[in-house]
Design a protein around this nucleic acid. Structure first.
Length: 268
DNA sequence: CTGCAGTAC
DNA sequence: GTACTGCAG
């Protein structure tokens, strides 16, 4: 029987394939459950990644995102901001590029041209200045949302600066940012990039021996109000967006932290 | 820091 | 489309 070895080889390949695939799935799904009082291991690429409502998660070198094709922008962008990431280096501002990692096709920056709206970074360029590559990686069209200039350069900019302050003070925070994507939003450009009516930012700190979180929800307009006026519970942002922000936290701890809109342990 | 726009190639 | 420059909040 000459065929038998071939069948054997095929069978072996299939078995190895299934084993590898299950191993792959397992490694993807493996979530570290964090309970109260525990701290996250240092020096890992551990992200507190939110769930995706679109199933279109993209991992870049220095941040991850979940892309919404109907809205032509990310529903969230997530990254860790460590104190060591903060750099005073001034990089030359590159041009925005289409994110080729977005399989359904990320929007072209042309949609924003003469739209009256800024190409507002979700992961700010100033948070990724530690290398030229990290800085330039924020200039992908999957990392921007149409923002009014006065909002972007105003209250939103203040929030981003405060986030860097917390990153420095607490030696690292996890940040998740996006616009609230909903039906019937105004849009710009040929590709109809949605203009969110609200933007959120969720911050998690785990470096002082306990986990704490803080969420902001801002109307898409500039404001002179102090930042703490925009604090909401993570639950509220989850209700608006459908995103589950920290699924790998122990459920009881997650429930407790996400229900709180207290900011007393954060300095403004 | 957040950005845009005009001009020239 | 890219490079350089200037400008605004």
């Amino acid at each position: 029987m000459k065929r038998k070895p071939i069948y054997t080889i095929i069978a072996v390949i299939i078995v190895i394939g299934i084993y590898s695939y299950e191993h792959f799935l397992n490694s993807e799904a493996k979530a570290e459950v964090v309970k109260e009082g525990e701290t996250i291991k240092e020096n890992t690429n551990h992200y507190f990644l939110p769930t995706s409502t679109t199933g279109h998660v993209v991992h870049h070198q220095n941040y991850s995102l979940s892309y919404s094709e109907p809205h032509e922008q990310a529903e969230w962008v997530a990254y860790e901001l460590k104190a060591s990431h903060l750099s005073s280096t001034n990089h030359k501002r590159p041009y925005f590029e289409i994110d080729e990692a977005v399989k359904t096709g990320a929007a072209h920056w042309r949609n924003y041209k003469n739209s009256g709206y800024d190409r507002g970074h979700l992961c700010p360029a100033a948070d990724r200045r530690f290398t030229q590559e990290a800085h330039d990686e924020t200039f992908l069209t999957s990392n921007i949302s149409p923002q009014e200039h006065k909002f972007n350069a105003g209250v939103w900019n203040r929030l981003e600066q405060k986030t860097r302050y917390w990153a420095k003070k607490n030696d690292g925070v996890f940040v998740v940012t996006g616009g609230v994507l909903e039906d019937n939003l105004k849009s710009i450009g040929d590709e109809e990039v949605s203009v969110p009516n609200q933007f959120y930012k969720v911050i998690l700190d785990h470096t002082k021996g306990e986990i704490k979180m803080l969420a902001f929800l801002m109307d898409h307009k500039d404001s002179d109000l102090p930042l703490y006026q925009f604090v909401v519970s993570v639950d509220e942002v989850e209700r608006l967006t459908g995103i589950d922000f920290f699924p790998e936290l122990d459920d009881a701890l997650e429930d407790k932290l996400e229900a709180s809109s207290s900011y007393k342990s954060w300095s403004f």
